[in-house]
């Protein structure tokens, strides 16, 4: 069941679109914000409100890399792996992160604290290499800075 809060946030999007199906991406982002990821049950809950099947929603969700159909850690690290960051040595940041966290790209740490995801160009190429942690963009990365940044996400 959607919580009253989730339901209210989704319904606030209804007037922005001519039909409810068009709200589904916003709806999934809202529920993911509250629950961390989109389980099958979450899709059923959303589907009931929007008049869509969970399978329909799954078809949409699996297209988009910012919608998670598997659990993620408390914090998600998005490390840019596109061209400008690559030129500026993002491979080094990536191996530093995988070593420090003890996970490969795409995996979650055993304590459930971090998920490490490679992501396409974050649009801050004059400050490459760049990563985001949750909603925050971190520019001009060095391995030492990465260590300091991670401490801010318990």
């Amino acid at each position: 069941m959607l919580t009253p809060e989730e339901r209210a946030e989704i319904e606030a999007e209804f007037p922005h679109y001519p039909n409810r199906k068009a709200v589904c991406i916003d709806a999934m982002k809202i529920v993911q914000k509250h629950r961390g990821w989109l389980s099958d049950d979450s899709l059923k809950d959303i589907g009931e409100l929007l008049g869509m099947s969970a399978a329909d929603l799954d078809g949409v969700a699996t297209f988009y890399n910012l919608l998670f159909r598997r659990p993620v850690g408390r914090h998600v690290i998005y490390l840019c792996d596109s061209v400008s960051c690559w030129i500026m040595g993002s491979d080094r940041q990536c191996s530093h992160l995988t070593k420090r966290l003890g996970v490969a790209a795409g995996e979650t740490t055993a304590d459930g604290r971090f998920t490490l995801l490679p992501v396409v160009c974050l649009g801050a190429c004059d400050h490459a290499p760049v990563m985001m942690v949750d909603d925050d963009t971190h520019p001009d990365l060095t391995p030492e800075q990465i260590d300091r940044i991670l401490e801010r996400y318990p």
Partner: peptide
């Protein structure tokens, strides 16, 4: 005027892909 915050993927920048995304479909 409304703001739509995307859920990712380069294809959304292709204009008809973007329209599909706004309609709540795969882009």
């Amino acid at each position: 005027l409304y703001l739509h915050l995307s859920a990712g993927r380069y294809m959304c920048g292709e204009e008809t892909g973007m329209l599909n995304a706004l309609e709540g479909k795969r882009a």
